[in-house]
């Protein structure tokens, strides 16, 4: 057993980053208050069906995360948001929306991301055309075991639009959301697996297969699953007289515009810093980067540090990340917090 620590750390967000950091810090003997605005821990992992690149069940990772926070030193508050955080000298006073007052020696912001609201890309007609759905809604369909269009039949052809709300100045997002390309590939395979007679087309600007085994998955999608990839951004969706979607895209490799009918159009919605995270940033005067996420103190060797001493970051509140990188980032935050609190203790002793 590690030496018992008196220090108390408030972690905001019980998603992948929050749970990982909470578990590791508790094992170091710190007392943790884990604040989660949703009704259960696990964050966005709760929404996913299978994970890229190996298509393991997301429940397995969820089980790992829940196992991490199963520790008497962690006190989790669900359905709770942060009301205010006040810093006084070296200490923080956190007030939750339930009126709890939590004194803290350090704060870890693991506030995660919000999904882009595709209504902002009016040209795709999300919320207007019945068969325009998001990548998250497709995950729900996988969960339900049936991929059906609004007409209640399996689609004959599915279009997948990459970069919806990412790399798009028109919606104020310059950044790449990183995980959508590989999600598209994963989902394309899953559609082909569940509906072998259904054609799948991915419309991409660039294929950004940054992680281990991602490029291999992309290759598998082409080789084994016959997924079609067309380089070009879909500019418009509309509905024809039969109620089938008609999309317009520039086939940039052919150098000509292309039109095609699809039965289901899946928008790969990007990720943005969460609204709750941005509220805290405003409250604490934390810097926000041009990508809208929290600005870290140093992009190379200080990416868990904020511009305020004692406030740390973990996970996708700093940038788009996959689960693997989020876990690594959260573990690194643990090291930063631990060394910070130890240095504080020394100062007091001296």
């Amino acid at each position: 057993m590690p030496e018992k620590q008196d220090e108390h750390i408030v972690i905001v967000g019980a998603g992948t980053a929050g749970c990982t950091a909470a578990g590791q810090l508790a094992r170091e003997g710190y007392r943790i208050s884990l604040i989660e605005k949703e009704s259960k821990p696990g964050g966005k992992v709760n929404n996913w069906y299978q994970l890229f690149p190996d298509r393991r069940k997301s429940e397995e990772v969820l089980k790992y995360l829940l196992g991490e926070i199963d520790n008497p030193l962690i006190n989790i508050s669900l359905n709770t948001d942060i009301d205010s955080i006040i810093k006084e000298k070296k200490k923080f006073l956190v007030t939750t929306t339930h009126g709890e007052l939590l004194p803290a020696d350090a704060i870890l912001l693991a506030t995660g991301f919000d999904l882009f609201n595709p209504e902002r890309k009016e040209e795709y007609g999300y919320g207007i055309y019945d068969d325009v759905i998001t990548s998250v809604e497709l995950e729900d369909k996988f969960h339900s075991g049936a991929i059906l269009t609004s007409k209640g039949v399996p689609p004959k052809r599915v279009g997948i639009v990459h970069c919806v709300g990412s790399r798009d100045e028109k919606v104020g997002n310059f950044h790449c959301s990183k995980v959508c390309c590989v999600t598209a590939v994963k989902q394309a395979i899953e559609i082909r697996e569940m509906l072998p007679g259904t054609e799948v087309f991915c419309f991409y600007m660039d294929m950004r297969m940054f992680g281990p085994y991602y490029e291999e998955l992309y290759r598998e999608a082409q080789e084994k699953w016959g997924v079609n990839f067309i380089r070009g951004k879909v500019s418009e969706a509309s509905e024809n007289i039969e109620g089938r979607l008609l999309i317009k895209v520039e086939d940039t490799l052919a150098g000509r515009p292309l039109k095609m009918q699809v039965d289901l159009l899946v928008l790969m919605i990007g990720i943005e810093n969460s609204l709750s995270g941005k509220r805290i940033a405003e409250d604490l005067d934390l810097k926000i980067g041009i990508n809208g996420f929290f600005s870290v103190l140093d992009n190379h060797y200080g990416n868990n540090l904020s511009n305020m001493e004692g406030v740390f970051f973990a996970g996708t509140c700093t940038a788009a990340m996959n689960i693997t990188d989020t876990i690594s980032h959260a573990r690194a935050a643990v090291v930063e917090i631990d060394s910070y609190l130890k240095s504080q203790k020394k100062e007091v002793e001296v």
Partner: peptide
Amino acid sequence: MKQEGKKRIW
């Protein structure tokens, strides 16, 4: 086609 979606834009 959902009319409410258009009304939201309008």
